[in-house]
Amino acid sequence: MRIFDADRQEWVGHEQEQRIAELHDRDAVRQGKALRGAVTVLAVCGLAFGTWALGWKDEPGPRGYLTVLQQPAPSGDKNAGSGDKNAEGDTAAPSPAGVPPAPYEEVFDQEGFRLAVPRGWVRDLVEPTEGFNVVNYRSPQGDRRLQVYRVGESSPYESLRTWLDETPMPGGFDQLAPVERTDDDGRPAARLDYVADKFKGEPDIGTWHVIDHRFEAVDGELYALAVYGSDADGRDDEEEFMSTALSWFCPPDEICPEP
């Protein structure tokens, strides 16, 4: 007896029917194995992708120091446009975080330290026969000065007392107050406030006002910052000048937070 094979579209005998049935069964087995293999591959790929995605999500980002800049105040802000008097006598606009207030700029001195000085000031270096190098930053007119150097005494207070006791005073010297012991972020400091009429090698501008601040920096060393300016225009500008220079000072080979 013959039957009709729908797949082959022909009539076949009983023996051919058995052979075709065997072929069909073999193909079904192969297709089942192929399907199971494909499902397994897809499952492994999905698991691998999920593991990678979770690992990427939890992976720490790049490390570094980020500074968030302060956004300008809206035009309607009642505080917009207000500011403090700066070293040149102008009104300083609020500056972004990490940027010195106008007209100051951040400088990295050749001696290795960082500080902020007004733009356009001229640097010179004094190399004494004894002691440490002295760095001066002067205004173009020569009527203002910032002086920076290391000191070798055991404390800021002792350093100022030694200077007062052993150094010839400039002409017209007048100490405005006793040497003041202060504290700079938990580190010892001392300050001397005085006026003088003349300094060797400096222009004659009348009476000078000087603030000499000596302090222990983050590296454990002692430094001196001294600011000089005319006493005729008041003493607040020297105070502001010292505050800016001191807040931006960072000793050599140290990482200091930005003010």
Results as ranks from 00 to 15, higher is better:
62 P>D: 09
100 P>L: 00
177 A>R: 15
87 A>S: 09
100 P>V: 02
86 N>F: 07
67 T>A: 14
57 K>E: 04
98 G>Y: 06
90 D>Y: 07
100 P>W: 01
157 Y>S: 14
176 L>K: 15
185 D>C: 09
59 E>V: 01
148 V>P: 03
128 P>C: 07
180 E>P: 13
162 T>L: 03
72 P>C: 05
106 E>H: 11
86 N>H: 09
182 T>P: 10
64 G>R: 09
69 L>E: 14
110 Q>K: 09
183 D>T: 14
184 D>A: 11
164 L>V: 13
68 V>S: 11
136 N>C: 00
181 R>S: 15
168 P>Y: 07
76 G>Q: 06
158 E>A: 15
170 P>C: 05
165 D>M: 05
111 E>A: 05
164 L>Q: 13
156 P>E: 11
186 G>V: 03
71 Q>L: 12
121 W>F: 10
143 D>Y: 02
187 R>N: 09
102 A>C: 01
96 P>R: 05
152 G>C: 01
54 L>C: 10
96 P>E: 11
139 S>N: 00
108 F>P: 00
110 Q>C: 00
141 Q>A: 10
71 Q>A: 12
98 G>R: 07
81 G>S: 02
136 N>Y: 10
182 T>Q: 13
173 F>E: 10
91 T>M: 13
138 R>Q: 13
71 Q>N: 10
114 R>S: 03
75 S>I: 07
89 G>T: 01
156 P>N: 10
65 Y>L: 15
61 G>W: 05
138 R>K: 13
169 M>S: 11
162 T>M: 02
120 G>V: 08
169 M>T: 11
154 S>H: 06
122 V>N: 12
104 Y>I: 00
102 A>W: 03
80 A>L: 09
82 S>G: 11
169 M>W: 05
85 K>D: 05
80 A>Q: 11
136 N>M: 03
130 E>R: 12
112 G>L: 01
166 E>F: 04
93 A>F: 08
172 G>A: 04
126 V>L: 12
142 G>V: 03
176 L>T: 13
61 G>L: 14
86 N>P: 11
187 R>E: 06
151 V>F: 02
122 V>M: 13
66 L>W: 08
171 G>V: 08
88 E>N: 15
133 N>M: 04
116 A>Y: 03
162 T>D: 12
85 K>F: 05
163 W>D: 10
160 L>S: 04
183 D>A: 12
69 L>G: 14
176 L>Q: 15
102 A>V: 01
103 P>G: 03
137 Y>D: 09
183 D>M: 14
57 K>G: 03
81 G>Q: 01
168 P>H: 07
93 A>G: 12
107 V>L: 11
102 A>Y: 01
179 V>A: 13
92 A>N: 02
69 L>D: 10
178 P>D: 15
105 E>A: 13
97 A>Q: 12
155 S>N: 07
89 G>K: 06
147 Q>T: 14
144 R>Y: 02
159 S>W: 04
143 D>E: 06
147 Q>E: 13
102 A>H: 07
141 Q>C: 00
166 E>K: 08
188 P>L: 00
